[in-house]
Design a binder for these strands. Structure first.
Lengths: 337, 337
DNA sequence: CTGAAAGCGCTAACAT
DNA sequence: ATGTTAGCGCTTTCAG
């Protein structure tokens, strides 16, 4: 395996110069740099990341903690982050919790991240105090995506506002009995609570009564949405509109409606949040949020903090809140008269 | 940052013993090991992976190359692999191509993997000769998932057989005009060709004519499936059954049928391959394949080759072919009479 | 602009 | 069972 020494010997210069030349550091004449690059290529030299890391103290690696890599939203954010990180020469270490509280515990507790990465991206988890303490102890940039964590860098949408936008839309269409499909899920997330709060506040502002029996847990999955939708829609006093806190659940509700032979939107209106890749396919009205973009921004944010991105700046935007917007499609309409 | 020296000093022993004790190597008395572990914990010592890697030559890291992390199949395989790798203390470096031929080129060409990982998992790509040469040069275990690569370790299903099973099912139900939705996709994959071959061979065995106009590209996406399904089903001489090479495309075909107001399965039968998480939800007949399991097996295979898994063995199963099975659901039935 | 030399924090012989 | 001693292959002062 050819190392930096081989390149230096070949050129009869020091390894220091080779290192500088190859990394684009200043203080190397253009001609030298050129020659170094050429022979490095000719010899097929590839620097050893382990050695560079040990010597420099930088890992050039970012950890991304994902609750479920199999869910579209998280996978998309991950894709956005990966794209930016790789562009800047960073490696991406994946930590998938697969919905396991145990795995979550291990990632943060057991020093799994220490000395391993330069920065951390955490998707959608609402961190506990203990987890924050661990992350603090890492002493490296951390950005949360899709979570509201005071005093920490976050990239997210205003979940409460998004939920209000959705609920308001139903209210404006004339709906008065509006069901909510949400749910705590297995792990602690920010979105569920914030969206539920938005739903309730929208009702309250419109002077509509809050009926706890119209709030059902859909576990943020399609199948959970089917069950929740079935429970809501088979009631004799069923709601005329259902707001699901995610498109996947909304799709489940659509399916429940179909099974109950209810027409959408004539008999019941349904909408979600996300603009999932299948939303247009189901003609689902939804409150769209930028997904890839949240991953990209979060990655850029930690790179900025590391001084690794082109746009160096001494101030760090601590909280980035991206806009959402209502995409009106065919699944919502006036309530049946 | 506390290092191995601090632990050694505290205990008045050598760093060698500390290292051995902490890594569970033989040649350490039980009592010593115990003491080492305790003070290491007490001091909050976490070994530096960079230093260990440099000294040992092992990275304890596996690269996983994924064509699209946002697609359910790949994300699921990834999840299976991650689970096993983490269990064995390995890190997972993610390389997501996001469907880009450029990204694919870079991952394999530019020494992006060299000196970085102990093994590589490649999902569903049909490697070119050049790529194989690169991988060969890495000199580390490589396993392909979902691809048939002679002389290399693979974990996959028999794609041709799976396609035959699907097509045979339609033929047995009495269908004589059977459409196929497949497609090359953007990158080179094994599955598309093999599944098309299976479809054709099934027709041939049954003595049915092969009609090239019944084979349509669905790009392995839902929307591609809609378009392909529409093209097939709006023909006056439309097929009575459609076999899609993936469930996502099959779901698209179902949607196309619905838009054309065709009943499934009365007017047209539809089936796919995968048993996608939404397949049961759509009541889609499909040829199921184990997905998570392919990721797990592939990970175990490279770990075995590295001697890292519990079940050490000198022989390596070069080709693991997992069984598939027909899941008969409501989307297939006899052709209209 | 370039070189010499001292580590970075471990692991792995080789001793004892 | 434990200690000693070289490195692993870079980066980074500090000189020149």
């Amino acid at each position: 395996m050819t190392g930096i020494k081989d390149v230096a010997n070949e050129l009869k210069m020091s390894t220091a110069t080779v290192s500088r030349a190859l990394r684009g550091l200043p203080g190397v004449s253009a001609s030298t740099r050129e020659r170094v690059q050429q022979t490095a290529r000719a010899l097929g030299y590839v620097p050893s990341p382990s050695a560079a890391r040990l010597a420099s103290g930088q890992t050039n690696t970012v950890a991304v903690v994902v609750p479920w890599v199999t869910r579209w939203f998280f996978a998309s954010v991950l894709q956005g982050a990966e794209e930016v990180l790789r562009e800047h020469g960073y490696d991406l270490l994946l930590y998938n919790l697969a919905g396991s509280a145990d795995a979550r515990h291990r990632v943060f507790e057991a020093g799994r991240l220490t000395k391993r990465v330069d920065a951390v991206l955490v998707l959608s988890l609402q961190p506990t105090e203990a987890e924050l303490a661990r992350l603090e102890a890492l002493g490296c940039p951390v950005t949360f995506v899709g979570a509201n964590v005071p005093d920490w860098a976050t990239v997210r949408i205003d979940d409460e506002q998004a939920a209000r936008t959705a609920t308001d839309h139903l209210i404006e269409l004339g709906h008065r009995r509006i069901g909510y499909v949400g749910g705590p899920g297995v792990l602690d997330f920010t979105a569920p609570n914030a969206r539920e709060a938005g739903y309730r506040s929208s009702l309250a502002r419109a002077g509509l009564p809050h009926d706890a029996s119209l709030e059902v847990d859909g576990a943020f999955t399609v199948t959970g949405g089917i069950e929740a939708g079935t429970r809501l829609l088979e009631r004799p006093d069923r709601p005329t509109g259902v707001f699901a806190a995610s498109d996947e659940m909304a799709i489940g509700v659509l399916q429940a409606a179909r099974q109950l032979e209810l027409r959408v939107p004539e008999d019941v209106s349904v909408l979600g949040i996300d603009d999932h890749e299948l939303a247009s396919f189901f003609d689902l009205t939804t409150v769209a949020q930028p997904v890839l973009e949240q991953g990209r921004l979060a990655a850029r944010q930690v790179l900025d903090a590391l001084g690794a991105s082109g746009t160096e700046q001494w101030w760090q935007p601590a909280q980035v809140i991206l806009p959402t917007r209502l995409l009106q499609r065919g699944s919502t309409g006036p309530p049946p008269s």
